[in-house]
Design a protein around this nucleic acid. Structure first.
Length: 364
RNA sequence: UGGGGAGUAGCCAAGUGGUAAGGCAGCAGGUUUUGAUCCUGCGUAUCGAGGGUUCGAAUCCUUCCUCCCCAA
């Protein structure tokens, strides 16, 4: 068994539990970034994390390896993420990272090592019924991370072991203390793995790749120019803060137009609402039902929706109630009860059809 | 060098004699393994400048400066 160890509390507890359960385990930490890259010390991928992971592995008496995948990470995660921003979309790198790095790159490594399973500290459950392997939401709903696993392949899921899925964060931390793990008191990793200290994620990417700032204007829903903005990549649907323009009233970004780098602003929050979305790269872990719960961002609770499957792994998702800030580039995860049954990527929000509700200017 | 209007924090803007509201922007925290959202907190403004009246002025008088509009 290969255990993905980030150096945080969660994966440390996972390692301890697996050892306790009698697995022949090895700990592996993915090095995603260079140490001289101006990393944030709280980052889950920092050199500090490697040290911590090594210490925990040592105390558990299991081998620990560091896989240098900085180049892969740059190519497969950071590069594509920047490309998304350039297109006026908002990337969701953690999902890609899970698929490409944690279960892709690491998965291949595990395969070479002849490991049956990969264990991680994600808060989600794996349920094996017969030959079927299902991924369920974490019991601790506040920490549930099944959304971030919704782009995995069924094969990747089949090899997963997620021992924290039935526990709460509090319990995990308590266990870490009991077991005397050196990482017991580590705070949550919060910053995205690839953001530079003090800079936001998009700006970090821009600087990392030495891309120029693309100028453009804020415009209102009628297309009137409101003023220049600070670079097209810095904005995302729903954003209110950090706009850098004072218009007397709160404004939210309701649309991004890549052709002329326009950022569409509105004081009317209902402009953020949409009845549905169009998703591509849709994949299923079970037969797609007519209705399900669709989750459109990490902390979104999920909302009842009707599915309309189209051709070519494309689907329309019609929500029973309009949802706010449906953002192209983000993932959509489909659930039936507790079970993750599928996923896809949001390409567009559907325009309103209900009377009285406005149509989003960047509609489908 | 005729008339009219305006100059209060980055922007907008209350306040017309009693010792400077508010909004937006910004900043700092919190929540969060994406971006947002959300929550909490944060403003020593030469009140365009000088002079005057007054116990006391952003508020009254006066001079100057700047901007805008209308006239030529």
């Amino acid at each position: 068994m290969v255990i993905a160890m980030s150096g945080g509390v969660d994966s440390s507890v996972v390692a301890a539990l697996m050892v306790k359960a009698g697995w022949e385990a090895i700990g592996v930490t993915l090095q995603l970034r260079s140490c001289d890259d101006r990393y944030a010390s709280r980052s889950c991928c920092s050199a500090d994390g490697i040290t911590q992971a090594r210490a925990v592995a040592g105390s558990l008496g299991i081998p620990h390896y560091v896989l240098d995948c900085r180049d892969t990470f740059l190519d497969r995660i950071m590069g594509p993420a920047w490309a998304e921003y350039e297109r006026g979309r908002t990337p969701s790198p953690c999902l890609h990272c899970n698929r490409e790095m944690k279960f892709g790159y690491l998965g291949q490594y595990a395969e070479r090592m002849g490991a049956e399973r990969i264990a991680t500290g994600h808060y989600a459950r794996i349920e094996r019924v017969g030959d079927d392997v299902r991924l369920l939401r974490g019991v601790d709903r506040a920490k549930d991370q099944s959304y971030f696993l919704s782009d995995l392949t069924q094969e990747q899921i089949a090899r997963l072991e997620l021992p924290l899925g039935t526990l709460t964060k509090l319990e995990v931390r308590a266990m870490a203390r009991e077991m005397g793990l050196v990482t017991a008191e580590r705070h949550e990793s919060q910053d995205i793995c690839l953001a530079m200290e003090g800079l936001g994620f998009p700006e970090s990417l821009r600087q990392r790749f030495g891309k120029p700032i693309r100028p453009g204007h804020f415009v209102d829903p009628q297309g009137r120019v409101l003023g220049p903005h600070e670079g097209f990549h810095r904005y995302t649907i729903g954003q209110r803060r950090g706009l850098g323009i004072a218009l007397g009233a709160r404004n939210h970004v309701i649309g991004l137009r890549a052709e002329d780098a326009s950022v569409i602003l509105s004081t009317d929050e209902t402009h953020l609402l949409s009845r549905g979305l169009k998703a591509s790269q849709v994949h299923w872990y079970a037969d797609p039902p007519e209705r399900c719960i669709a989750q459109i961002r990490s902390r979104h609770p999920g909302a009842p929706a009707r599915l309309e499957l189209l051709w070519d792994a494309t689907a329309l998702v019609h929500f029973e109630a309009p949802q706010s800030a449906i953002t192209p580039g983000q993932a959509v995860a489909f659930f039936e009860e507790e079970r993750l049954i599928g996923g896809g990527w949001i390409d567009a929000a559907l325009p309103h059809s209900a009377p009285g509700l406005p149509t989003r200017p960047d509609g489908i």
